[in-house]
């Protein structure tokens, strides 16, 4: 049977894509951020997951406002990156696992999550930056991926409680897959940041650290926040924290924090990373 071996969270700030391309790992601005990731990669090297299910939000590459799915699940053989318009380098495609995708889609819909299935799906920085951070040589590593996009672009966005429940359903879906595959769930985005309006530049360290703490052992507390409370506390784009909650919902075993990192600022953001083990 398939097994969810753990969950990871990481911010997916686009500037990180440029910093990776320029190899700024030891640059004083970037070092406190990049220094968090070797521990995550060491853990991944030891655990050797076969599949990464990456929960992210599309920022206007694959989806536009003409059709805006709340939950969209990739079901492709591969996922291409493409030009996002402002100069982040384009990356080679990511390998899919359509068989597991369709199992997940069947199970989610049976579980009353009426998702949008996508046999073609371009993936933007929300997906590619976490993949680059966690699997720098992803093409050679053989890791297969399933992107899941949750709408954070246009309100109403799904509530933290709904995303947490979606994660629970995702966990049930994966664990009912008959093949012996090891899966990690990656929750991306956040933490606090706001790009738009007169409050641009807003970061909330106290709230971020509270979220990083409580998501380990008391995720239900965070799931009680309303979308607007999340916007108020984490910033307009910090509402991406719902993606972390979806990840956390999928971990139904004994969850233990192995590593964490937090740094302000990366670009306009409080950047957070967590490695969570999900023991049977």
């Amino acid at each position: 049977m398939a097994r969810i071996v753990g969950g990871l969270t990481t911010s997916h700030i686009p500037a990180v894509g440029n910093a990776i391309a320029k190899q700024l790992f030891d640059d004083p601005y970037w070092k406190p951020f990049f220094d968090g990731y070797p521990k995550a990669r060491t853990w991944l090297d030891a655990v050797k997951p076969d599949v990464a299910i990456v929960i992210y939000n599309d920022h206007g590459l694959n989806f536009f406002l003409d059709k805006m799915p709340t939950f969209a699940v990739g079901a492709a053989f591969e996922y291409k990156n493409d030009d996002e318009g402002w100069g982040i380098p384009m990356l080679p495609p990511f390998k899919g696992d359509p068989k597991l995708s369709w199992h997940v889609i069947d199970s989610l819909v049976r579980d009353e999550f009426d998702i949008c299935s996508c046999q073609e799906m371009t993936v933007d920085h929300g997906f590619t930056v976490p993949m680059q951070l966690l699997w720098p040589d992803y093409a050679a590593s053989g890791i297969r991926t399933i992107p899941i996009s949750i709408n954070t672009v246009q309100h109403p966005i799904p509530s933290p409680a709904r995303c947490y429940k979606f994660g629970r359903a995702l966990g049930r879906a994966v664990e009912s897959y008959p093949e012996d595959v090891k899966v990690v769930i990656v929750g991306t985005g956040g933490l606090s940041h706001q790009l738009d309006g007169k409050r641009a530049g807003f970061i909330n360290k106290e709230f971020d650290l509270m979220c990083m703490d409580k998501i380990v052992g008391e995720p239900e507390t965070l799931a009680k926040l309303s979308p607007l409370e999340l916007v108020r506390e984490a910033g307009a784009q910090g509402a991406e924290f719902i993606l972390w909650l979806a990840m956390r919902g999928a971990l139904t075993g004994k969850v233990r924090k192995l590593h964490s990192n937090y740094h302000i600022p990366i670009s306009n953001t409080g950047a957070g990373m967590l490695v969570l083990e999900n023991a049977a």
């Binding site: 500037a15 206007g60 306009n268």
Partner: peptide
């Protein structure tokens, strides 16, 4: 305007989210 699409407009002029944030504040 939504900031994610506006960022693509700003990108034409080589402006990043700090430039955009500075202008707004």
């Amino acid at each position: 305007g939504n900031i994610y699409y506006l960022a693509k407009f700003a990108g034409i002029f080589g402006l990043n989210v700090q430039d955009v944030g500075a202008q707004q504040t």
